[in-house]
Design a protein around this nucleic acid. Structure first.
Lengths: 138, 138
DNA sequence: TGATTAGATAGTAATAATTACTGTATGAGA
DNA sequence: TCTCATACAGTAATTATTACTATCTAATCA
């Protein structure tokens, strides 16, 4: 969990306490939170921080490639500090989003073969599955 | 392109001219339009139709499983009358969404194996790739 | 075929998510 | 320390989606 500030600086981003808190919060969770959830968490440390700052900062982090914005679920955006291509499993009942890193499908291979077949310059791949998780099934 | 009305009736939906026009419009394109685009098209036939009718009708068709709502792109919803699981290729420059049916990956197999490994009851699978299409690359 | 009724349409309003704008404050480099 | 580009907080504007209501119409049955 070290070197977060360096990563910001590498992309030409200023290192501010608020920005660090937002980035660190996302790095420390695997829950794929929304901007609102991150805001709640960061407010514990910075009670005066505005939702807008959290929202725009997440947008900046995404555009510089430090985090990933997920289109899972219905309308709200979810965020993920893990930028490696991996599978997302979304439970339609409890809403939780689970990662699947060691899936049979290697998404890198998938992207490569599709690139070769179609001529697209592929920059991002999203594999989202929706269903009911084992816990909710009981 | 026949039997559209029957499909509506099977799901307990009333067959109205507007609804038919919306569904038919989506069936006749492979462009994955937004609600707004579909509205523009249907207005040629029904100038008085409201955007709201188009929007809510698309929601009904999706909830009854006749069409598919895609989370590709940024914020707006896209729709697809092809409800088989298939890959979507989104060009980040021209915005077009292309289908990939004969991809190496059989999404049904992917869903089945993930189901077996995780215990999820998977109901929907989305594989979206983003990049630049060959046309835009030139 | 005509009356009945649940559901569809058109129109508008409300909610929610995202983006834009502005004055002040602050990190980074000279 | 000084300067400047950028971040922050607050608010406003835009856009997407959902909710509501009064009419209207497709489907069912007498």
């Amino acid at each position: 969990m070290r070197g977060l500030a360096e990563r910001l600086r590498e992309r030409g981003l200023k290192v501010t306490p608020q920005r660090m808190a937002i980035y660190r919060t996302l790095c420390e969770t695997t829950a794929h939170p929304t901007a609102e959830t991150i805001w709640e968490k960061v407010k514990e440390e910075f009670p005066a921080i505005s939702f807008n700052t959290v929202y725009t900062t997440l947008g900046i982090l995404e555009r510089t490639g430090l985090i990933q914005r997920l289109h899972v679920g219905e309308n709200v955006a979810h965020y993920d500090a893990d930028i490696s291509p991996h599978v997302h499993l979304c439970c339609e009942r409890c809403g939780r989003v689970r990662d699947l890193h060691k899936a049979e499908v290697d998404l890198k291979d998938v992207a490569d073969s599709i690139r070769a077949r179609t001529g697209y310059a592929i920059s991002k791949i999203e594999l989202n599955l929706y269903g009911i998780c084992p816990e909710c099934l009981q």
